[in-house]
Design a protein around this nucleic acid. Structure first.
Lengths: 333, 333
DNA sequence: TAAATAAATGCAAGCGTTTTAAATGCTTTT
DNA sequence: AAAAGCATTTAAAACGCTTGCATTTATTTA
């Protein structure tokens, strides 16, 4: 019924050459006489032949597809990275298999395995928690892997990020400079290295430098969501904070609106700096001051790095830090 | 060097059975004696054998992966659909190859072709414009295709949507009922059927029913972006509109902020209803009244429909309309 | 012009599975 | 106890392409 598929063999027959020759012209191999190439190309065109990538993958052991594990496409931070990834993937003729993990260790492992079963040439992993089991899976496979916007405490696996400790330190210092003494630090789970190690460290460094005592009651651990931000406002307020550094934009906008709905004037009564400079920062009112991160570029660079690894070029630096900045918009004085 | 891969043949040898038998136990074929199955399973476990999906795909002519063409993952409307798609895909053991098209006809065709070359079992297409050339590509392949959140004027290809004309009609009527006579209709390109045919039709129907003359000057055609929304406020204001129905949330929030920044009091001086009920509607201040669409479900249902088609079950209804609603939040009186 | 070298092309062996037809064992029947 | 009938299992042919090596053809060189 649907036995309508044209194979390389059909082309070879029609053009009266061997499959090898057809394969060569399809793959742009220069060792083909121009006249032959032309003849083959005509037949390909006439028969509307389309090489079967699966067969090609089996024979060549390359699928030109990479796996992308993402916590949630719906989160603008990650989708921005994903867009960067896809664009450079396309540029290098790769396709991406996108899989949502919900940051669930179980799912991550499971998904990683099906990606490897599908023989992806490489994988890009996003997720704030690199558990030991996932690290074990990474190690077990010889497939190149790079983390995008996600840190590995051990720096064993390639990654591209910004310097989170410096960035948060600078953000916090900005708030200090504006006269704030009680600055809340609100972010996701502290068990995630990016929060518990890097960001927290930056936060503490800024406090130390300003000779402000570190107060655990000003550290708020929640989840990355708008609702969580709205919900946590009361606690932040109760703690007496006059400003906050926040680890995620959705979370930040939640907190911002929570405060605003509570009648607090921002930035006069309360200042706030968020972390990802996604679209959301321009959308809120007032617009949010933020650490600026080149989200798209982080994804793009991660993918570029991966192409090098897949190509077995050796890379000088496995852990790349891209430059960040601070933009002050309406939520800081 | 990396010749470390274990094949079904290795398992067969170690378990002293044939490849066929191993294949059967791997695929859960019941025609295997329990004792044999156990033995094979043990070897699989011991050797840490992982079936090669590419080889499997070649032999079985099924890749258990579907292609997903999306305008831009970064757009919350589409990423919401994508999430629904991925979730049910996973549920049915499929993976998705995600490709951004930027609604660029050229890219769409190109991407569709590489997806087909990769032998995806089906494809889900998102994009507001089904050009003739893309339709031709659809027709040319026997691969099942379904549109998600995208209409095909001819209803030739399967799709999942809401009833856009009714929805916009209802939104517009709501605004009329609130006393507005000059209601702007702002959306993306009118050359896209969803706008130029469906939504516009709903808008006109509501006006006709309210005996309000249709005024082309109140129809604004722009692009789906925050910036575009901010930018168009001046024109909407100049046209003397007292309310607007808007085709996209990012666009709407742009318009909303544009008006707000201009000192306009919403909803007292200007009312607005947007279309997609994405997260953004809750994030804006005031929160936006909106047509409610089950975005996630549209994606999920589209994927479910696709699984049926890939499975050659016959489906009763190719063009599915999911229920919508209207929520009035802070941008309507 | 024969020999040597280089350029094109063809052969055929994989790549790792699935799958069909055939073979082998075991039980049951009669 | 031979014939039948089932349940298992095996052998081997695809699946559609890449690729190393051999072969043929064209081009130089001497």
């Amino acid at each position: 019924m649907d036995k309508q598929t044209i194979t390389i063999y059909d082309v070879a027959r029609e053009a009266s050459v061997s499959m090898a020759t057809v394969s060569r012209v399809v793959n742009g191999n220069p060792n083909v006489k121009p006249a032959t190439r032309k003849k083959v190309l005509e037949v390909i065109d006439r028969l509307d032949y389309r090489p079967n990538a699966v067969a090609r993958g089996l024979a060549s052991k390359k699928t030109t597809t990479v796996g992308v594990i993402i916590p949630d496409v719906t989160n603008i931070y990650f989708s921005s990275l994903a867009r960067g990834i896809d664009d450079v993937a396309t540029m290098y003729k790769y396709n991406i298999i996108l899989a949502n993990s919900d940051e669930n260790g179980q799912k991550e492992i499971q998904v990683l395995n099906t990606l490897l079963a599908k023989q992806v040439d490489g994988v890009i992993f996003m997720g704030n928690q690199i558990t030991d089991s996932i690290r074990a899976e990474f190690a077990r496979s010889k497939t190149p892997i790079v983390l995008a916007g996600s840190v590995d405490a051990d720096e064993q696996v390639a990654s591209v990020n910004i310097d989170y400790v410096e960035a948060i330190e600078e953000a916090t210092s900005t708030l200090v400079r504006h006269g704030n003494q009680k600055i809340a630090f609100v972010t996701g789970s502290l068990s995630e290295p990016i929060n518990g190690q890097y960001r927290l460290k930056g936060y503490k460094k800024a406090l130390t430098q300003a000779k402000i005592a570190y107060d655990p009651n000003l550290v708020f651990e929640t989840e990355y969501s708008y609702k969580a931000g709205e919900a946590i406002w009361d606690r932040v307020k109760a703690a007496g904070a006059t400003a906050a550094v926040i680890g995620d934009d959705e979370l930040a906008i939640g907190l911002l609106n929570g405060a605003g709905d509570d009648g607090v004037n921002i930035p006069d009564d309360f200042e706030l700096i968020t972390s990802n400079d996604s679209k959301l920062t321009e959308i809120s009112r007032p617009k949010m001051s933020s650490i600026t991160q080149p989200l798209y570029d982080i994804g793009a660079v991660a993918m570029r790095l991966l192409t090098k690894m897949m190509n077995k070029e050796d890379v000088d630096n496995q852990t790349i830090l891209l430059p960040y900045g601070i933009v002050e918009r309406g939520t800081t004085k």
